[in-house]
Simulated scan of single mutants.
Amino acid sequence: MYKLMIVDDEPQILEGMKRILDWKQYGFGRIETCESTEEAMSKVIDLMPDVAIFDVCIGKQFGYDAIRRLNEIQIPTNYIIMSGYSEFKYAQEAIRCGVKDYLLKPVDRIKLQQVIEKIIVEELGGTVDNMSSDHLNKDPVLGVSYDSLSKLVNRILLMIKTEYTQNITLKSVAERFQMNSTYLGQLFLKETTMKFSEYLMAYRMLLAQERIQSTDEKISSIAFSVGYNNLNYFYTHFHGFFGKSPSDLRGKG
């Protein structure tokens, strides 16, 4: 069973974070909360949590300063920072102390879910295949159960799902696995019958489709939110994938 610690100086935030996910379903058998960095430092050493979620500002202290001190004494915990501030300096400090992600408040449940799944698979050597809900058991692009795929391919898919907004490539994934990119690409193709780049594009297209149909966001904003900095490139991929333009899909063209 995994152990979780949540650190925030607002009791209602702590309660909300305890309820935001079905932690038990993810294998977290123990959850501890702290309202100060001093209490957190003491509890971390005793609890040795697998995951700790720190607010960026806890009273007059900074969450990343506590994380930095814990890193110095080599506590093997995976840290997440949450913050009501989008200032780059906070995110920069969080990145410097090796946090797994920087989430803005109010914390998005789906985003947190993705980060936790990624930590479970990549850092804790676990799986998320036994989640009860269908959307967690079945890959939206491949249409097959995650149980039918190898652990390696599941890890690649999870990377795509958590980093699709970034410039993720087969080469960058291969480097993280310390594998040859050509060989990794062949393994992925053999198992999924799709090239890595084809899967990435399809995943981004499905997300874009969902946002186009369920929101009034500008198409340019949606394109950027799914990892396309070039709008023309997005339109070309979209039309090639769906056979229609984004505005046609929304019913305004």
Rank of each mutant, 00 (worst) to 15 (best):
M1I: 02
I6V: 15
V7F: 06
L14P: 14
M17E: 05
G27N: 09
F28I: 03
R30V: 06
R30H: 13
I31L: 13
E38N: 03
A40R: 02
A40K: 01
M41T: 03
V44E: 02
I45V: 13
I45W: 02
D46N: 10
D50E: 09
G59P: 04
A66M: 04
I67P: 02
I73D: 01
Q74E: 08
T77I: 01
E87M: 10
A94H: 03
V99T: 12
D101R: 03
K105E: 06
K111L: 12
Q114K: 15
V115K: 06
E117P: 08
K118E: 01
I120F: 05
V121M: 07
V128N: 15
M131F: 11
N137K: 14
V141Y: 07
S145N: 07
S150M: 06
N154I: 07
N154H: 02
Q166N: 15
Q166K: 10
K171C: 00
K171D: 06
V173A: 09
E175N: 12
F177Q: 11
Q178F: 09
M179R: 15
L184A: 07
L184T: 09
G185I: 08
Q186Y: 04
F188H: 04
T192L: 04
M194P: 00
F196P: 12
F196I: 13
R204M: 02
L207N: 10
R211I: 13
E217H: 08
E217T: 06
K218N: 06
K218H: 03
S225A: 14
G227C: 12
N230P: 13
L231N: 06
N232A: 12
N232D: 14
Y235T: 14
K244V: 09
K244M: 15
K244F: 03
S245L: 14
S247D: 14
R250E: 03
